[in-house]
Amino acid sequence: TETYTFDSEDQAEEFAQRAQKKGYTVEKRKENGKFKVRVE
């Protein structure tokens, strides 16, 4: 499980979609103005 942090929602969304296409489970959340994407 890895967590990635992005400054913009667009970046987080793009990353999450790519990860989902590769078959990963993706969980997105906003925390302290940053966008976190957890991938497993």
Results as ranks from 00 to 15, higher is better:
residue 12 A to W: 04
residue 34 K to F: 10
residue 27 E to I: 12
residue 31 E to M: 05
residue 34 K to D: 03
residue 18 R to H: 11
residue 38 R to C: 12
residue 33 G to N: 07
residue 40 E to I: 15
residue 15 F to P: 01
residue 29 R to H: 12
residue 22 K to H: 13
residue 38 R to A: 08
residue 24 Y to A: 08
residue 16 A to G: 04
residue 13 E to Y: 06
residue 3 T to M: 09
residue 12 A to G: 02
residue 25 T to D: 10
residue 19 A to K: 07
residue 15 F to D: 01
residue 32 N to M: 06
residue 21 K to G: 08
residue 39 V to Q: 01
residue 11 Q to V: 09
residue 8 S to F: 10
residue 22 K to Q: 13
residue 29 R to F: 15
residue 31 E to R: 03
residue 15 F to K: 01
residue 33 G to W: 01
residue 21 K to Q: 10
residue 5 T to R: 03
residue 35 F to A: 02
residue 37 V to T: 01
residue 10 D to Y: 09
residue 12 A to H: 01
residue 3 T to H: 06
residue 35 F to L: 03
residue 14 E to H: 07
residue 25 T to N: 11
residue 23 G to W: 03
residue 5 T to G: 03
residue 11 Q to E: 15
residue 2 E to R: 15
residue 23 G to K: 02
residue 32 N to G: 11
residue 12 A to M: 09
residue 2 E to I: 15
residue 37 V to C: 02
residue 34 K to T: 06
residue 1 T to V: 13
residue 29 R to T: 14
residue 38 R to I: 15
residue 14 E to V: 06
residue 13 E to V: 05
residue 37 V to A: 00
residue 9 E to W: 10
residue 36 K to T: 14
residue 35 F to M: 04
residue 2 E to A: 13
residue 30 K to Y: 15
residue 36 K to E: 12
residue 10 D to T: 09
residue 6 F to R: 00
residue 18 R to I: 11
residue 11 Q to R: 08
residue 16 A to N: 02
residue 11 Q to G: 06
residue 34 K to A: 08
residue 20 Q to N: 07
residue 22 K to V: 06
residue 29 R to I: 15
residue 5 T to D: 07
residue 38 R to T: 14
residue 5 T to F: 12
residue 32 N to E: 10
residue 14 E to D: 11
residue 4 Y to S: 02
residue 35 F to E: 01
residue 30 K to V: 13
residue 8 S to R: 09
residue 32 N to R: 04
residue 37 V to P: 01
residue 24 Y to H: 11
residue 10 D to Q: 11
residue 26 V to H: 02
residue 16 A to D: 01
residue 6 F to E: 00
residue 11 Q to I: 08
residue 6 F to V: 01
residue 13 E to F: 06
residue 35 F to W: 15
residue 10 D to E: 13
residue 33 G to M: 03
residue 39 V to E: 00
residue 1 T to P: 12
residue 23 G to I: 01
residue 20 Q to Y: 08
residue 13 E to C: 13
residue 25 T to Y: 13
residue 13 E to M: 06
residue 2 E to Y: 15
residue 8 S to V: 05
residue 8 S to W: 07
residue 33 G to T: 03
residue 17 Q to G: 07
residue 16 A to L: 09
residue 15 F to T: 01
residue 21 K to E: 14
residue 20 Q to A: 13
residue 35 F to Q: 01
residue 34 K to L: 09
residue 18 R to D: 11
residue 8 S to K: 07
residue 23 G to F: 03
residue 18 R to C: 15
residue 7 D to K: 04
residue 3 T to E: 14
residue 17 Q to Y: 08
residue 30 K to A: 11
residue 32 N to L: 06
residue 7 D to T: 07
residue 22 K to N: 14
